[in-house]
């Protein structure tokens, strides 16, 4: 198998082809909007069409390359996968091309290949099985700058969680390029809540959390945020978020961590599945 090449191709797909669930959600938003809001969504959809046809990046900010890997405890190609992930980022940077987005925080130097210390960012999860699943999430700077961590006093309860999410997302206005997708992580701890929020973005739009209480929270947050009227690009309208996805972990009795992860309309994703025999499937 040529793992590096296939992973590189998948990163390229993510940068240039918006997933069908996101396109459908943007189309539905266009159909219910009018005036400047509709103009923005029409421009977005035309842009998506041009990018796919010409295989050019959807947005000039091609993001930080982020991987979420679910590896089976019996998966035999772990070694090759560890080596292939940063190499695939380099390959895609040249081939697509992608904008080099990794800057050394002290020297300001940019290696020019979208890799660097701890980048691409990789989150490993061990699961039962003999295969592996690599989720690719290139994340732009404008929306990442709008992410937030709130350490709430547990006494505020879920009402406090709702209030904090709505206030934060609305206060971002047009900055993260709405309509956005919001990942909400509740509990776990400061770092884990943000990680859960980011992981929640991997779920396809239109798919609710399997637990009814969490699914109800997602639906309520969508409705509340969209009632604000911020709208596409912060120019006013009915669609400020395409979706809110929530995940949770158990919390310490004294803590109620809330991670709010904001993703722009260009919600770019791709997935590569590696079977036990090394066969690859790119989605």
């Amino acid at each position: 198998m040529n793992l590096t090449q296939e992973l590189g191709r998948a990163i390229g797909n993510a940068a240039t082809i918006l997933p069908p669930d996101v396109v459908r959600s943007l189309e539905a938003a266009r159909d219910r909007e009018e005036g400047p809001a509709r103009v923005q969504l029409e421009a977005i959809l035309e842009n998506v069409h041009i990018a796919r046809g010409g295989r050019v990046p959807i947005c000039q900010d091609t993001g930080t390359i982020t991987f979420f890997v679910k590896a089976g405890t019996k998966f035999r190609h772990l070694d090759a996968l560890v080596r292939a992930l940063p190499e695939a980022a380099r390959t895609a940077t040249k081939d697509v091309p992608l904008r080099p987005n990794t800057v050394h925080p002290f020297t300001g130097k940019n290696p020019g290949d979208n890799t660097g210390r701890s980048i691409p960012a990789i989150t490993w999860e061990m699961v039962e099985g003999d295969g592996a699943e690599v989720h690719i999430l290139p994340k732009g700077g404008g929306s990442e700058n709008c992410c937030a961590l709130k350490m709430l006093p547990p006494g505020v309860g879920l009402k406090g969680v709702k209030e904090a999410v709505v206030e934060h997302v609305v206060s971002c206005g047009g900055l993260p390029c709405p309509p956005t997708v919001i990942g909400v992580g509740i509990g776990g701890g400061a770092d884990l809540s943000l990680k859960l929020g980011k992981k929640a973005l991997l779920r396809p739009l239109g798919e609710r959390h399997p637990e009814p209480e969490v699914a109800a929270l997602e639906a309520e947050l969508e409705e509340l945020i969209n009632a604000s009227g911020v709208g596409p690009m912060g120019l006013g309208g009915k669609t400020t978020v395409l979706a809110v996805h929530a995940e949770y972990a158990h919390r310490h009795p004294a803590s109620l961590p809330l991670g709010i992860v904001v993703q722009c309309w260009a919600h770019r994703r791709a997935t590569v599945r590696i079977r036990a025999d090394g066969k690859l499937e790119v989605a």
């Binding site: 206005g173 509340l224 604000s228 120019l235 006013g236």
Partner: peptide
């Protein structure tokens, strides 16, 4: 300025949204 007009509208909408959260479950 659309931005100025909108911030007034959003401010008003937020008052109603806060009341809904407080009155909810």
């Amino acid at each position: 300025s659309l931005y100025k007009d909108l911030s007034v509208t959003v401010g008003k909408n937020m008052e109603a949204i806060r009341a809904r959260i407080k009155g909810g479950n």
